[in-house]
Amino acid sequence: MTSSPAIRVRGVVKRYGATEVLTGIDLDAPRGEVTCLLGPSGSGKSTLLRCIAFLEETSDGLIEIDGEPLGYGPGSNGGRVRLPPASIRAVRSNIGMCFQQFNLWPHMTALGNVSEALVTVRKFSRGEAEARAMAELEKVGLAKRATHYPSELSGGQQQRVAIARALALEPKIMLFDEPTSSLDPELTGEVLNVMRRLAETGMTMVVVTHEIGFAASVGSKIVFLDHGKILVEGSPTQVFGKPRHARIDQFLDTYLDRGAAGLL
C-alpha cells in the first residue's frame, strides 16, 4: 500500500451541536512530506488535526492512516461503521502528537515524560525505556536536561521534550497543533529548528501553524482553511506566489508585517 498517502481524509464533517466546524474536508497528506494547515482562528484547522489524532470524533466522513481506516470504516449501505477499540488503538499508534501547550506531565522529569509510555504502553523495561528516551532527548538537544521537571524548563525546552516524547514511540506520522504559538520568537526558533531537522529525516508531518515562513520553507504542501473548508491547497509557490487568492492576500496582511510578506 506504499502508493496510498500517509493520511487520507474524505468528506470529513465535524459538528458541535448545530455549528458545522468542518464542512466536508477532502485532504491527502503525502508520505515523507510536510503538510501545513493554515488559516485564520476558527477556520477549523486545529479541529481537523485533532480529528486526525482521534482526539475529536468526526461527525461524518472517513480518515485513513497509512491505508488503514481510523475510527470508522465504510459501511455496507454507503454509511460508515464504528471500528473496534483494538483497531483504533493500533491505527493511532502510528501517530505522534504535539500540542500548543506542550502538555508535559508535571510530576515527571523530562526523562520520565519521554520514557513513560514506553514502559506503561509498550512494556519496555525501565532500563531499555530510559536508554531510548535518552537517545530521543539527545536528538532534540536536551540530554543535559533529562532530570529536570517541566517547571524547570523553558517553553521551548518543554516543547522539544514533548516532541521527543512523541518520537520515542516511533510514529510514522507526526502531528503538530500550533507548536510555537505560546512561545516567544527566540524559543520559537529552537522548536522550528528541531521540526526542520525532523522533516529532513523524511518524517511525514502535518503542522497547524501561523509561522508562514516555516510553512513556506519547510512545507511541501500548504492547505489553507477558511470557515471549515479548504479554500486553497498546493505547493508554497502555488499558494503564496502571485497571483494569489484574495483571501490569502488578506490573511498574509493580517499575519505578517509588510516586510516579511515581501520575502515570499
Binding site: 482526539l55 493511532r92 501547550q101 506531565w105 508535571p106 513513560e116 506503561t120 504502553v121 514511540l169
Partner: peptide
C-alpha cells in the same frame, strides 16, 4: 488540565493506566 490527559491518550494509555500514572499523582498535588 485536559491537555495532560489528551497527551496520555495520544501515546496509547488505557483509562486505568491514565488514572494510575497521570490523574492520581497530579490530583494529589
Amino acid at each position: 488540565p485536559k491537555g495532560h490527559l489528551e497527551a496520555a491518550d495520544c501515546v496509547g494509555f488505557s483509562r486505568v493506566q491514565m488514572i494510575r500514572r497521570i490523574i492520581v499523582p497530579e490530583m494529589t498535588m
